[in-house]
Design a protein around this nucleic acid. Structure first.
Lengths: 210, 210
DNA sequence: GTTACGATGGCACCCAGTGCCAGCAAGGGA
DNA sequence: TCCCTTGCTGGCACTGGGTGCCATCGTAAC
């Protein structure tokens, strides 16, 4: 669920054809500006293309849909999550491993926090993007399910791995929502607490955690 | 997440104006027929309207969007879930109460199972509907969060209730997905197991449940 | 140059969803 | 019987996302 700016394509590689007119990151910036100005829904793809000085048709060669703009290089980020999970020693219990990886994966440099906030505000507050997020998060769940499967000796599509993956994603989204509500909150703490609180809820009638 | 056919509007009440030309249920049936025939995406709203003998414009007075067709009277069903949770004695631990209510809420008469399968297959397998489901499920989560909030003495939008609600929804979806994969499976058992498995995962390193 | 390659962007089209509004089908008077 | 009110219908025009097609442009290599 964390994002960073993607690696810029080499300014002038030795490729034959015409050079790209812009980049994902640049379009992302242009678009975010417009979204801040008049909101996501009231910004059309034409607006974005015009502001970026490209054709509407070209826009769709950089992003498969308007809904994908806030996602940056999420697919690449995912690899970090996978690596982070794999790096966790087997002695660490499953849910602890996932919790730690989750917190780690969502660590953002403090300079990047405002940007990350705007990004996640879009993804988790604009209805069209909330809906779309489900499709993008599926890949994230797959990573968690794969890890849980490996740990429990089941197939990734078995019930337990899937249940765990779905649940952890849900918990993470809950934490993010609280984070967005609370301008001073620490995302890492919220994510950690959210997972712990769920565990505590299972543990018995109810003990609030920390 | 369960659905039943909604109560038909009185055939001919004493109302003044023109009578309704059709009903949600009827449109739902017509639409499901077309979906089965050529798939959700390749069925246009025009197709459905034509098949039902109404105007395209009229269709949108029965359903706010094409994506809402498979949802039947979900909003009303929700009330059942709320009542079911409230009926649970306070001695029953929180997560047990939720688990029991979840299973109960999703109990379907055996005659209705094939229909329910088709419905959920659409909702959980067609990308556009998977995305849309997030928006509809929000209301379901709110019911669970409200219950968890009441039980834990927190506000419904606090971290723990939200985390629990998100997690339970996730787990339920995981169970449904398994159910759809497995034509002979029992939905109730899967839902029950899914919640238990998650609890077990938290309980420690890993003990498979039953 | 010329050629090969890859990006661009215009155009036409499909489809979901919406505002507007004329018109239709009932019931209830007068 | 004639009207009036009420409420549903559905055509029309329009917006906006997304796609297929294709001519054109810019660049590197030969």
């Amino acid at each position: 669920m964390n994002h960073v700016t993607e690696t810029k394509t080499a300014a002038a590689g030795g490729q034959p054809g015409r050079r790209r007119a812009t980049s994902r990151v640049e379009l992302e910036h242009v678009a975010f500006g417009l979204f801040a100005e008049k909101g996501f829904e009231r910004t059309t793809v034409d607006d974005i293309a015009a502001a970026a000085g490209i054709g509407r048709r070209t826009f769709f060669r950089y992003f498969p849909s308007k809904n994908d703009i806030p996602w940056g290089a999420f697919e690449l980020e995912l690899e970090r999550m996978r690596v982070r999970l794999k790096a966790c020693p087997r002695e660490v219990p499953l849910m602890d491993a996932i919790r730690l990886a989750l917190v780690d994966f969502n660590r953002v440099e403090s300079a990047q926090i405002p940007w990350h906030r705007r990004r996640m505000e879009l993804i988790l507050r604009v209805p069209a993007l909330v809906a779309h997020s489900t499709l993008r998060f599926a890949a994230w769940r797959a990573v968690v399910a794969e890890f849980a499967a490996e740990r429990t000796g089941q197939r990734p599509d078995a019930l337990a791995p899937q249940a765990i993956a779905h649940a952890v994603l849900g918990v993470a989204v809950a934490a993010y929502e609280r984070w967005l509500d609370d301008s001073g909150a620490d995302l890492g703490v919220l994510l950690d607490s959210a997972v712990r609180e769920l565990g505590a809820a299972f543990a018995d009638g109810w003990h609030s955690v920390s």
